[in-house]
Amino acid sequence: MKAGEYVIDGRSGRVGQVMGHVGGYVQLRPPGGGREWDCPPEVLSPAPPGEVLRERVRQLNRQMRLAP
């Protein structure tokens, strides 16, 4: 997995953007930003474009609800 690619964490189903590699793990961040998490590379699969878009819309909606 290369930095910038979008993948699905097979453990949770979350979509993440590859930020880098540390030790034996891949560091992922949600498409709209947020807290990174570590994932073993063997459970990752490429994210279809529709899944990435759906996750971005979810995060934008969440941000709009929290905005004053």
Results as ranks from 00 to 15, higher is better:
25 Y>I: 02
41 P>N: 02
45 S>L: 03
4 G>R: 02
47 A>R: 05
27 Q>L: 15
65 R>N: 10
38 D>S: 15
7 V>M: 12
17 Q>N: 07
41 P>Q: 03
67 A>Y: 04
31 P>V: 10
42 E>V: 11
35 R>I: 03
7 V>L: 11
23 G>Q: 06
6 Y>W: 02
60 L>P: 00
43 V>M: 12
21 H>A: 14
2 K>P: 02
65 R>E: 14
5 E>N: 04
66 L>Y: 06
1 M>I: 10
1 M>S: 06
32 G>L: 12
22 V>A: 12
63 Q>A: 12
15 V>K: 13
38 D>K: 15
49 P>V: 02
45 S>T: 12
64 M>E: 09
3 A>Y: 05
33 G>Y: 04
32 G>M: 11
17 Q>H: 02
1 M>L: 11
39 C>S: 15
19 M>G: 13
36 E>Q: 09
35 R>D: 07
12 S>G: 09
57 V>D: 01
46 P>M: 08
13 G>R: 05
58 R>Y: 06
56 R>H: 00
38 D>H: 14
49 P>H: 08
68 P>E: 12
13 G>F: 04
59 Q>R: 01
28 L>S: 05
33 G>N: 04
25 Y>S: 11
38 D>N: 15
37 W>L: 14
64 M>Q: 07
29 R>I: 10
30 P>M: 03
10 G>W: 03
61 N>H: 08
15 V>G: 11
20 G>W: 09
51 E>Q: 02
52 V>G: 06
29 R>H: 03
68 P>L: 13
32 G>A: 15
13 G>A: 07
46 P>K: 05
13 G>S: 06
16 G>T: 15
27 Q>R: 15
29 R>C: 11
49 P>A: 12
17 Q>S: 08
44 L>S: 08
56 R>G: 02
65 R>Q: 14
25 Y>Q: 13
10 G>M: 01
26 V>T: 15
50 G>C: 02
13 G>Y: 01
